[in-house]
Amino acid sequence: MLSVENLAISFGGLAALRGFSVEVAEREIVALIGPNGAGKSTVFNIVTGLERPASGRVTFLGKDLLAMVPHAIARCGIARTFQNTEVFRQLTVLDNVLIGCHAHLSAGALRGALGLPAVGREEAAARETAHALLARLGLDDHAGVEARALPLGLQKRVELARALAAEPRLLLLDEPAGGLNPTETRALMGLIVRLRDERGLAILLVEHDMEFVMSISDRVAVLNDGRKIADGKPGAIAADPGVIEAYLGREDD
């Protein structure tokens, strides 16, 4: 479904990625792990069109993503969350999610300004969808609250709801458990797996929480110093001596 081949990119002479490849299949949960600065978020930024690699290929459902701008990539069915949550802080939770629906609504400025009945029907349907999503993610009590007034854990969930509102085929989650407490993290693990099952989503995620990664991923790719040093089932990765040395070993310090 998503195929990333041989990405290379450097920032100010420092190579962030040197020939990185990864594949994500339909309904697969793939985790991207590696030490800080290994280039994980850069992979996300390249896939979503925010950064352009010096070389390499990115295709999604047969389309060349490197030839596309970010909003067009989003419309292909790729939604994402951000490492340092990018909720629309001064907008209500409901509006955040409605903006996620943007690509599926059709009302232009003129039809919207004239308040045509068709626009009203479209809006009502979008609101219904958004409320259903909020209920699904346990955010229904907060629909009318400004996103900035929520604690970080809930802001992350608002961001997830906004991404899901776009009805993506592939979801990119950048440190979904970052800043969450253990209870919230466990709830999120269950939620992600259920979302994959219910919606047939493919998910690519970056995460530092090893318990999280090992228990929900179908496959784990390990990135170190811009290169992929391992790619396989969670059990195999946990036992890989190269990975332990590069990454897991260091965490025990």
Binding site: T48, G49, L50, V69, P70, H71, A74, R75, A79, R80, F82, E86, V87, F88, I99, G100, H102, A103, R162, A163, A166
Partner: peptide, 9 residues
């Protein structure tokens, strides 16, 4: 950035 990611031109 988030607007683009939501498909907004």
């Amino acid at each position: 950035v988030a607007a683009q990611a939501s498909g907004i031109h």
